[in-house]
Write a protein that binds this DNA or RNA. Structure first.
Lengths: 201, 201
DNA sequence: GGCCATTAGTGCACAGAGTGCAGTTTAATT
DNA sequence: AATTAAACTGCACTCTGTGCACTAATGGCC
């Protein structure tokens, strides 16, 4: 182990992270006020106090402003899965990883983004496209835990089912807003699937 | 019943369909030759013998050129599911609908498009986003078959699982190109899921 | 402190996707 | 033949995203 992982985080790194956060917040506010399509990158840049050109040093695209915060969350999931117990069924490992990382899930921001996506089918599609990254992260984690090549298809299958369960849970959670806690929705969705599936490992 | 459904298909309608097909073929050829990103709509229009502006009377966007042919296929699936037997488990109805419509699935075009998407992650994402339409179509079909509101969540769950199985099947089929028939891949994927799932209906 | 490499940040010009609009041509209907 | 709707074109425009050349700020190092 080389120097563990704390990393002192330099001033520059911190500034960057904070500005990244700032731009995201400004953007979400503008999206909520005027709609996603009607908000141009020029406006976002102006309201954030930077040049339009410089936006692309923080986000690769307009969509990324909404979805990039999920990237590190997905990465955490992958790592958490990789640290799971190989004796358990794959789905159970994923379930535990999701539930144990739920505290780090930014529910408030997700709710705001869901509001922005409402009535914008193009954005919903992009959101869906982004979910492929969750599935890939799950698969990556599972493949680390069970590196043998012959189990790859089984793990792919498990990652598809898992991300399906998560999507189902999120859907219920967003629909019955505030009626259920996200953790319960996720637990229910996995329960439902685990109950119906005889996970033969 | 008013006039049934045969519809004589007027000359105009037919011309439109043929031109639609023609543009698609031209585009796929260009995409294969020069890549998706490097092929502009202006080139496609020129090679198709129409104006760039007029392309948008056939396709809403560049992506649509690749994905629109799936639209009517998905619609067939939905109708086929809606005609299923309500006594069977939902997953079984979907499985039968997929398998019985497989002859109408344009495998050749799908292979070409898969080739185009290879090494283009943005396009893969868009492809993934498009799959939400299959899931919606499945859910639509199932909801027609079981219109009672209280089973909606169960049907949503089934549509997520089904489209997951289809995606798994397609993945295997594309990976082991020509090694297995698509029908077998689909059957296997559903078998696998139906075997592992105790479909309690 | 002063030098230096790196990173933050700007401005400009450009390409390509997609839209609105005003207009012309073509084809089906009566 | 006249009418009407659809096919089709051209133009000007907006917005996203990129390449490039450039300046400003910052951290490390002597």
């Amino acid at each position: 182990m080389r120097q563990a992982s704390p990393k002192p985080e330099g001033l520059r790194e911190r500034n960057r992270r904070e500005k990244h956060e700032h731009i995201t917040n400004v953007s979400i506010r503008l999206f909520l006020e005027n709609g996603y399509d009607a908000t141009t990158l020029a406006e976002i840049a102006y309201s954030s106090g930077i040049s339009r050109r410089h936006l692309f040093n923080y986000f690769d695209s307009k969509d990324e402003i909404l979805f990039s915060h999920l990237r590190e969350y997905y990465e955490m999931i992958a790592e958490s899965i990789a640290r799971g117990s190989p004796g358990e069924p794959a789905m159970e490992v994923v379930r535990k990883a999701i539930l144990s990382n739920l505290a780090r899930f930014d529910a408030e921001r997700t709710l705001a983004i869901a509001k922005i996506m409402k009535n914008n089918t193009a954005l919903q599609s992009k959101n869906r496209a982004n979910e492929i990254n969750l599935e890939k992260a799950i698969l990556r984690g599972l493949s680390t835990l069970w590196p043998d090549r012959e189990s790859h298809d089984r793990l792919l299958f498990a990652s598809i089912l898992s991300s399906g369960a998560i999507r189902f849970a999120t859907h219920i959670w967003l629909r019955d807003e505030n009626e259920m806690k996200l953790a319960d929705c996720v637990a229910d969705a996995f329960d439902r699937m685990m109950f119906e599936i005889q996970c033969t490992q």
